[in-house]
Design a protein around this nucleic acid. Structure first.
Lengths: 175, 175
DNA sequence: AGGATAAAGTTTCCATGGAAACTAAATTGG
DNA sequence: CCAATTTAGTTTCCATGGAAACTTTATCCT
């Protein structure tokens, strides 16, 4: 792991303190702000991260008023479309870890939107379904959900958006 | 009204405890595990999240041996390509918040890979550049970086990968 | 000038999500 | 059948990254 450590014993902060005004210019680039992304422009990991930040912005612009975070909204939607499914199955299909799923479901239950139903056939398991309030909520918010999809599209054309989702699904193995 | 236990005063957990084996089946879907993704398949936010999980897997498969996390590796690369750039400019181009950037740079400095240089012209600012060790490290790891890009491609063809990166760049406003 | 405002980094604190250990129930296999 | 293993979900703890407040320096404005 390349043990190249010459740091002072604590984390070394280097901002110029009072007693200095003499220092030679290190070779500074001409422009002070323009950063060359270089190979990162071909790095899928990087591009996906940036794109996700945009998508989050779109989400909060559209749906922050609902008081639900993206994960909660997504889970709610999946329960709406798959009533009675086991909590673990929902979690797996969203790539949410069990520990996280427990807390996420807790919040939705506390919000009165979904309910846990003990499984009659497996006493460890729990089935999820919407409460009547959850049904009402989902029905009322369906338009917001569609509006979100519009907003998420951002500057992409319909065709580009469709290409993008298709490629992402293939890449993620969701086809 | 099924065996739906209304919230106890704390977070309501509903798993069947010992004293029950009688309960009527709620309307369960035929398959116990197959979840219908439904409209989520068109949700960019969701697809991006899943895709990013894949990309992270690829990263750790390829580069976990280096002892650097994705963000650190990315930042290192950007400093390599933009030596002497101000810390804040690097952070902005990576969409990393200042607070996070401070800690990330701390780690890279402690690892001996980059160094902070006090700016001669702005005493608040800090310029970043690679240490000699950092240069050596980056040069030695260039092949790993390229291998990562191959691994990141996953099941996509060259053309699909190129489409995908192009669309992501457009969506993120990086063109 | 020189006070007000903005900007660069840092620190502290908090929210989110994962890892590991745990409980209870189901399954397996001898 | 019953011990061993596996599975569903929960709990506790920890790592990561953001928000807000702060310090220091630069810039702006009459």
């Amino acid at each position: 792991m390349l043990g190249v450590i010459k740091s002072e014993q604590s984390t070394p902060k280097v901002r110029a303190k009072m007693p200095a005004k003499t220092a030679k210019k290190p070779p500074l680039p001409a422009d002070d702000e323009t950063v060359e992304i270089a190979e990162l422009g071909e790095s899928l990991g990087f591009l996906l991260r940036i794109a996700q930040l945009r998508a989050f912005e779109a989400f909060f612009d559209e749906l922050s008023a609902l008081g639900l975070r993206p994960g909660e909204f997504t889970a709610l939607w999946l329960v709406l479309r798959n009533p009675g499914m086991k909590q673990g199955a929902i979690a797996r299909s969203l790539c949410i870890k069990p520990a996280h799923m427990t807390k996420l479901v807790d919040r939705l239950v506390t919000a009165g939107l979904i309910e846990r139903v003990a499984s009659p056939e497996d006493r460890r398991a729990v089935h999820l379904s919407l409460t009547p309030e959850g049904e009402t909520f989902a029905a009322a918010r369906k338009d917001d959900f569609l509006a979100l999809h519009q907003a998420e599209r951002g500057n992409l054309s319909e065709a580009e958006f469709s290409d993008l989702t298709r490629l992402l699904k293939k890449y993620s193995g969701l086809d």
